[in-house]
Design a protein around this nucleic acid. Structure first.
Lengths: 345, 345
DNA sequence: GTTTTTAGTTTAATCGTTTAAACATACATT
DNA sequence: AATGTATGTTTAAACGATTAAACTAAAAAC
């Protein structure tokens, strides 16, 4: 960069004073530090004239604070997380923080790397959407007393701050909704994951069946591996349709599963919802644009993101405050893909 | 954070040497600086034992380099850019750089803010997807000699490095493809924008008509304002369909326009491609999932992102190298939405 | 007329690195 | 023995800011 940046020293020289005075004035400490009024005015004028911008690195090195938040999300190519990232970024900026984003791609190792890199970069704190098998990393942060907030996914056994979704309730509602609309053989396509939110979705789904006295069939639940979504989904759906009690409705536990599933359903020539009703988690333009708009679980993204930032920033100011554990409620948005079942004559 | 971080000094003390030696050893300069072999081994051992991690802030302050790239994209909620962001991040990481991302939301003022914040944060360089009216900002960077590469959009009048798409050719191909498949009345829905890539898309589209001796009708071209996409698209499409030469095919110049347009087309009950053929820029899962898969212009995202990073990093090492100006070619992916027109009897 | 206060300013250490230059030894050369 | 060279190590300044503490000079208090 051409003209080297102006520093406190430059201003000090031009004003014929020490850097200390300049620092006091520009940090609004003229009162406490009893800086002469005239000189204060002069310093401010010179600072403006030279277009002074403080050097964050120096500031941070001295203060130990970088005003930077590390955001680790599970998958940036998922529009849900991309949106969350944007919200977090905006909210952080409002509070004078910069966000650095990393995507762990649902991979514990990448997540570990990111945490290391970000710690190295001296982020003040983290907002984390945990990936599978990353519980131990969270323990580590807890142990090192690094400020962080878990977002969207949390570990029930760990005493951490978190903001997530009441997945049990959301899945329960999804199932109940389908049942109310006359569907009886309801499948769930979830990820094969020990993550709590996923287990809760499964539990909520099963509970909805149970409360309606629908005996659960093991073929109705498919748990798909992250790495082999496309293939397993095809096999899974085939299996569900060929079962003794073939499904007439499907719940997708995530956006990505829904995309893959719908593609396959399309290719089979099945008609939604007549051949197969659909409810999905996650939200996206796809769901509007599908020939039959998809019923989905509306997650309060805006609140999730904002609250996470709020909690983290509060924590940065008051490290010893009580842990905040927030479960937000989703709202089922009913569309055509789960409309009242037409009885076959 | 609990245990304060270990510094060079801690290692130095434990090894009973000066920090200089430690620094030399840990930076692999033992040879040039003739550090004793035994002591070098000892220092390394202690560093490992204490789990030493250098402090980036101090390093950066000293070196004037932060190993950080500022990425400013026009709209993070657009999957095209979200993907680009991910690619840039990955590629940068491979080269030891961290990326901080900001979304300008197609807004010059936000873009200016981001540039200021990032400069403040001492990013080593920028990768920028410019937004409308931001040419002057680019001039400013050029003038200040800040290293940067423009991505996806560039200004033909400015001598900058850039990596973008041959938009003229891509639009020309889109138009020609429709014409070849029997469509004659072809509309284009673009943004109302002075940005070069948009103007080029319009030019390419018109050229395809011209070369096929199809007289251009002014009703066929709609330029939509960023802020009022939904409304203007409805009016625009209505107008195109009611014109003297009603369109039988539509090209969308961006992903966002396509989404809005398709929604409206759906709501009108029009059948793609029989009532209206479609080709769109941008790519996304939506296009696969639509009842009639959408023909689209495949942009070489991977190459775009990687090349931008490459050029920037090269530039950081060799600031005076020649400017690289790269136009990449898009590839039309033909699907059902633009299939051979069925002649009406 | 001395002492105390108050106001205004500077000094210098500090954050954690890097690195040119100075220093100190040992060894080789004449 | 005096000088030169190689080897190994330390010193100290620098990056740009912050801030406790020291200092100075003038005003207030006794």
């Amino acid at each position: 960069m051409n003209k080297k940046k102006v520093s406190l020293k430059d201003i000090a020289e031009k004003a014929q004073v020490s850097t200390a005075l300049v620092s006091y004035v520009l940090n609004g400490k003229e009162k406490e530090s009893r800086v002469g009024h005239e000189i204060a005015v002069k310093i401010k004028a010179i600072a403006r004239e030279l277009n002074y911008e403080p050097n964050y690195l120096a500031k941070s090195l001295r203060s130990g604070k970088t005003q930077t938040i590390g955001l680790i999300i599970a998958d940036i190519s998922n529009p849900f997380f991309a949106n969350i990232a944007r919200i977090v970024e905006d909210e952080a900026k409002k509070n004078g923080y910069t966000v650095i984003i990393g995507s762990s791609d649902e991979n514990a190792e990448k997540s570990r790397d990111l945490i290391a890199v970000f710690l190295n970069r001296q982020v003040d704190g983290f907002i984390i959407v945990s990936s599978e098998d990353s519980e131990e990393q969270i323990r580590y942060l807890l142990d090192k007393n690094v400020p962080f907030v878990l977002l969207d996914r949390h570990f029930p056994d760990l005493a951490t701050d978190f903001v997530s979704l009441n997945s049990f309730k959301a899945a329960f509602d999804a199932g109940s909704h389908l049942i109310q609309n006359g569907y009886k053989n309801i499948g769930l396509i979830a990820y094969k994951s020990q993550l709590f939110h996923m287990q809760e979705r499964i539990r909520g789904y099963r509970q909805s069946l149970a409360e309606n006295r629908i005996p659960f069939q093991s073929t109705w639940l498919k748990e798909i591996g992250f790495e082999t979504v496309e293939k397993e989904i095809r096999v899974g759906i085939d299996d569900m349709l060929a079962a003794d009690f073939p499904v007439d409705a499907l719940i997708f536990a995530t956006y990505r599963l829904a995309i893959a599933g719908l593609k396959y359903i399309n290719s089979l020539g099945l008609k939604v919802p007549d051949d197969l009703a659909i409810v999905s988690f996650g939200q996206a333009e796809v769901f509007d644009l599908y020939y039959c708009p998809i019923t989905y679980v509306l997650q309060p993204m805006e609140e999730l993101g904002k609250t996470a930032v709020e909690i983290l920033i509060h924590k940065l100011k008051q490290p010893d405050a009580d842990k905040k554990q927030i479960l937000m409620e989703a709202k089922l948005v009913a569309r055509d893909s789960s409309r009242l079942k037409v009885k076959v004559a």
